[in-house]
Amino acid sequence: MTRRIPALVVCVAAVIALVVPLFLPDLSFYIQMILAAVIVTGLSLFMGYAGQASLGHGAFVAVGALTVAVMTVRLGLPPLLALICAPILAAVFAYIVGLPLLRLRGHYLAFGTLALLLIVQAVIATVPFFGGGLGIFGVPPLGVGDAVISGQLPYVYLSLAVLALALLISRNVIRSRFGRGVRALAGSESAAASSGVPVLRTKLAVFALSAAFAGLAGGIMAFFTPYVSSESFPVATSIAYIIMAVIGGLGSLWGGVIGAVLVSLLVQVLNAVSNQPGLPATTGPVLQYGAYALVLILALLFIPKGIVPTIAQAMRRRRDRRADAAAPTDVAVEPWASVQG
């Protein structure tokens, strides 16, 4: 649901997000965290609001990244054009694969999307034009004509701008006729349909929108890295997106951002721990997977709705209780047909 977060909190968070990168020596982690927030915001639209599942959202990140790599390196097209095409191609791709995929439900849909990611990985790995076994190196820096971005910082601010845009679009969409249709699907498809919501078409549109976010994030990643291969989009990362979405709170606008930040920070801390001298090389992955599992289980046990909705609900309960104290329910319920409509 669209739960309003106080504007002050948002402003403070925005200032922190803008200032912090000025003091970090290396921004790779930071930019990955922001782009994860963009991806998870889209995923949360699809999973949280529409009540669907996608275990393979990395597929759309891959399409966006590949769009940029292929258009710039293979075809020599302008970088900006490539970046603009990244979300569009990702959305078109989602729409096309969604036509058969979104007829599936629940576990079948989850496995279907996972299979999609595996297929995309395999295609990238086997088709030389898409990188093959080597990958595509040397993506040029983003720029317009001769004005070219150098250094990491501009990419960070670009990513933050994209995140702001993603949040704005999500908010507008959720609070609209279309968005209500989307959220209705999660409650009851039959009731949504008889309220005039075209079920498949609506799912396809949200799927494509969330893929566009992922594709745009992937495109920026390709410029930043600047390298794309079949190994750039591991299944574990797609699982991590889901964990972020669940922990932050499916079906809440800010849940994706909160989840992405918390899980990214956790992974970063674990990386620091596992890089201590004297530990075996496998410590990192083991810690990371262990932490994913633990965090997910704890979250499902104690805050099944995720952080943001849990807090919002507590605040709402308090408000409702106050309202009840002021006006007993017997008075609140009027007879039917009391107002002539």
Binding site: E334, W336, V339
Partner: peptide, 10 residues
């Protein structure tokens, strides 16, 4: 208006 009509406005 519809909520008022069925007595659920509150």
């Amino acid at each position: 208006a519809a909520l008022g009509r069925v007595g659920l406005a509150a």
